[in-house]
Amino acid sequence: MLATVPTTIDHAGSWALARLSADGRPFPALVSGDRALDLSASSALGQPSSTRQLLDRWDDALPVLDELAGSSDGWQPLAGLTVLAPVEPRQVFQAGANYRTHVIDIAVAHADGSDGRTVEQVRADAAAEMDTRLEHPPYVFQGLPSAICGAYDDVVLPSDGKQPDWELELAAVIGRRARRVSPEDALDVVAGWTIVNDLTLRERIFRKDAPALGADWLAAKNSPTFLPTGPVVVPRAAVPDPGDLRLTLRLNGEVMQDESTKDMLFDVAHVIAHCSSVATLLPGDLVLTGSPAGNGLPRGRLLRAGDRMDSTITGLGAQANRCVDE
């Protein structure tokens, strides 16, 4: 573990939802700066043993959480507690190629010149393709909850992986069961927001033995610890507009990603609405909304053991993950 005992978590609003551990016992908690409140003993909440239980009845739990956050009883220092991933979703939805600059950079990185196009032509073609994509639904695939780890846990680089890369993303945490919700109503099913780093083994995205089958996201995305999540869920009321949040990822102190959610091709509401048109969204599910430009592959710099990633999104706290060999 890199930093499982932070002394404080900076977040928007007066409180955030967390999943903490003391002496190996995980419990749902409120976090307010440098303080934590164990919710597992709260009779008003039904003594929940997990954050999922709270998210399963979020509309009822939210006013109680607001009230508890204003009380002075039962709080303890955050220091000394282990910060776990704040949610245990049943489903993880992952939007791909949803930032304009990112799509262009990836297109250039994958171009080998065999088609005779210059770099400028590749960029222009990628930009034109994005205009066409707006006529169709967002591109979304599914990930595995087993890939999730905490915001301060080590990221394990697979021994057979060749091109591990970072992808910082804003994630919506679903707070209501939802099916076929409209874009206009989509944010109403969001309980809150969290940070996810959606790591990828770039060399496994496209299989040379089966090119006609498309991207192999199972192999590329789902190695254990490849979804650092958290540290907290910040309630939607504290960050009501996800349309202009800053995502910043530093590798060993050097800024790699630094972009606003304004650069999204499809906004958060449209991504959620599309997911709900295909599947039923369940409380506690994660909907990842894509990663901005600044990934490692276009830079020719991929992750290796000893690297440290520090990630922030406006109002949602910070992650700090060290890379280690399997």
Rank of each mutant, 00 (worst) to 15 (best):
A16S: 14
L288K: 02
G46A: 00
M1V: 15
L17H: 09
V87P: 14
N222Y: 01
V103P: 04
D185I: 00
D198M: 13
E203Q: 11
L249N: 02
R304V: 12
G296Y: 07
L265M: 06
L170W: 10
V255L: 14
A18Y: 03
D59V: 08
T289L: 12
I106K: 02
A111D: 12
W58D: 00
A111L: 02
S72Y: 11
D198H: 13
S40D: 03
T289S: 13
R176E: 03
E169Y: 14
G96A: 08
W58E: 01
L39M: 01
D165S: 09
E167W: 09
A293T: 03
L62R: 14
E203P: 03
A305C: 06
I195W: 09
L2V: 14
V196M: 10
T82F: 00
G214D: 03
Q91I: 00
P77R: 04
A212T: 08
A41M: 09
G243M: 02
P89M: 02
K208A: 14
S50F: 00
V108S: 01
I148S: 05
V103I: 07
G306K: 13
E254S: 12
Q319H: 01
E67V: 01
A3C: 07
S146Q: 15
Q163N: 11
S182Q: 00
R301E: 15
R299T: 06
L303H: 11
T289W: 10
L201H: 10
Q53H: 13
V140R: 11
H110V: 06
Q94R: 12
R299V: 02
L286S: 05
V31F: 06
K221Y: 09
A124V: 06
V5K: 11
I174K: 06
T280I: 01
W217E: 02
L282T: 06
A95R: 09
T229F: 07
R123L: 04
A151W: 11
D38T: 04
G230V: 05
M256E: 04
S291D: 07
T118S: 13
A18H: 03
G284A: 04
R52W: 04
Q47M: 14
E254K: 14
V119F: 00
T248V: 12
E259M: 09
I106V: 04
A12Q: 09
L17S: 05
C323T: 05
V64G: 00
P138S: 07
P28A: 12
K221P: 12
E167P: 11
W15F: 15
P292N: 03
R90L: 07
T101A: 15
R204Q: 10
L20E: 08
D115C: 10
A111N: 13
E259H: 10
P77E: 12
A22E: 06
N197H: 11
R179D: 00
D285K: 11
W193G: 08
A61S: 13
S43K: 15
D66Y: 12
G33C: 05
N197T: 04
A124Q: 13
E120F: 05
P240T: 03
A318S: 15
L302C: 09
W58R: 06
L297V: 11
H136T: 15
G306L: 13
L30G: 06
R57V: 11
C275Q: 10
A147N: 05
T248S: 06
V234R: 09
S49H: 07
N295D: 04
T289C: 14
L201V: 14
R19C: 13
L316P: 10
L37C: 05
D285I: 07
V83Y: 00
M309C: 15
V278N: 05
